[in-house]
């Protein structure tokens, strides 16, 4: 028996919108820790890891560990039927091949339930080692989204370079080149507007902008984004989800052949 009641149902709606472009089908894993997902994109260069901790749910019952295979586009279709202020409850019985999403309006005058078929998904689970990153950049998520969008109109890849001076996003294409430098800026009115760079050593890596743009679909989840870089390691683009957890995107760097 599984019953997860999320008062801020809009968070789940936003999570689905953030990942459904990257991943078609995925297993949601439910355990005492929380509701989580790990899935790779079809070309195996990007990975999404989601955690919504059990403490973030108003009611969290998970009698035994359960893995539920879902088509994310179908799940998003159902969750779009929930109002932004609705409370969402996810329910499943042991051994069932369906999951139920229940939507309650804030004043309880409308209650809807949507039952979705589950699917068997053979997913690879990757062990992600803890890494020491050469540079960690925290910046406003909207700014990062704007940069990725702007650069993708010029080129296909972005070079992210971190130095003491700041973080530089560069691209090149048929029509020309573009460089955007964001300097460390801690003296702002609100902490979420700051750009903060923690650098052990300079790092410069190249990534496909198509994936970066896909990651920025998570922008509505968090006002800030954290980009962790190390030479020859996948970049981690992390959006914190309120007090509940995170959504992390890993992307392998491009290498010269």
């Amino acid at each position: 028996m599984l019953e997860l009641r999320l008062v801020q149902g809009s968070l789940l709606k936003k999570v689905l919108e953030a990942i459904r472009e990257l991943v078609n089908d995925a297993n949601f894993d439910c355990s005492a820790t929380g509701f989580s997902l790990q899935a790779m994109d079809s070309s195996h260069v990007a990975l999404v890891a989601l955690l919504l901790r059990s403490e973030g749910f108003e009611h969290y019952r998970c009698d035994r560990n359960l893995s539920m295979g879902m088509n994310l586009n179908n799940m998003a279709k159902m969750l779009r039927c929930a109002g932004n202020d609705d409370i969402i409850t996810i329910k499943a019985d042991d051994g069932s091949d369906t999951v139920t999403f229940m939507f309650e309006s804030p004043n309880q005058d409308k209650i809807a339930d949507f039952e979705m078929k589950l699917m068997d998904i053979d997913s690879e689970h990757l062990g992600i080692p803890d890494a020491e990153y050469h540079a960690i950049v925290r910046m406003p998520s909207a700014e990062f989204a704007r940069i990725c969008k702007d650069l993708s109109s010029i080129g296909d890849t972005v070079v992210i370079s971190v130095t003491k001076e700041g973080v530089k996003f560069s691209t090149a294409g048929d029509i020309g080149t573009a460089n955007i430098v964001c300097r460390q800026n801690k003296t702002v009115d609100k902490p979420e507007e700051a750009t903060v760079i923690e650098m052990q050593e300079p790092v410069s890596l190249t990534f496909a902008l198509r994936y970066m743009n896909s990651f920025t679909k998570a922008t509505p989840l968090s006002e800030t984004v954290t980009i962790s870089l190390s030479s020859e390691l996948p970049v981690v683009v992390e959006y914190k989800i309120a007090d509940m957890g995170y959504i992390r995107f890993y992307l392998a760097p491009k290498i010269e052949e």
């Binding site: 790779m40 070309s43 195996h44 260069v45 990007a46 990975l47 690879e124 689970h125 990757l126 062990g127 992600i128 080692p129 890849t157 190249t206 496909a208 390691l233 996948p234 890993y250 392998a252 760097p253 491009k254 290498i255 010269e256 052949e257």
Partner: peptide
């Protein structure tokens, strides 16, 4: 030209 590395070359399979 440059190619994108596969994540499996960084992360181990569980």
């Amino acid at each position: 030209t440059s190619k994108q590395q596969k994540l499996s070359s960084f992360f181990s399979h569980k």
